[in-house]
Amino acid sequence: MRNTLAIAWKELRTYFVTPMAYVVISVFLLINGYFFAASVSGSFAEASIRGFLFPASFILLILTPLLTMRLLAEEQKMGTIELLLTAPLRDTEVIMGKFLSSLAIVGAMLALTLWYPVLLFWFGNPDPFPIITGYLGILLVGSAFISVGLFTSSLTSNQIAAAISSFGILLLLWLINAAPQFIKGIPPGIFDYISPSVHFRDFAYGVLDIKALVYYLSFSAIFLFSAIKSLEARRWR
């Protein structure tokens, strides 16, 4: 655990010495501010954060590959992976440390939006439950996205290739629930089950579904596990 935290801490520091974290966080807040403002003003205004949650999940889909692309690709490019893999660390500690660092950034981004609900409570009377589950849901979505990005970053020494391929995987999975419209013969429920966007809806409406929780956790676990295996395979190449 100490090793994992040491790596997470080191990565976090790197995020803030490069402009990456600042840029990603600013862009996220800017676009979300826009959607939040749009959702609470005008004639269809409602006292909920749904109008901000759905766009936010999609913005995360675009931004997390940028957060994660560096994590392992750069180590491979710069050769620093040689010292990382010869240090007395388990591959799991390396991957989890890097995962936690990105999750912390996403967490911080979301924390900075907490004043939206504060505004809602100030001016209106929102239902608190969907707000709580909404934030939980979007954090889970972020964690799933990060695990995919970490996996693709483990496969290549090229950051751009890592970012594009994780974006591709995420977008495909995000939209895959639309597949039954043109792929016949496979029960549509399967596509719904695979797609992270479908499971997110429940959270946004205040439903805490154990199945969705398990879905996101296993989604992250599968990709984190693949990243660990990919690191192991590097060791044995």
Partner: peptide
């Protein structure tokens, strides 16, 4: 690995630290 100290040929260090 716990008992080894290693310096690779290219001395790959984290340049931003």
């Amino acid at each position: 690995r716990k008992r080894i100290g290693y310096m690779p040929e290219t001395v790959p260090l984290y340049t931003d630290m």
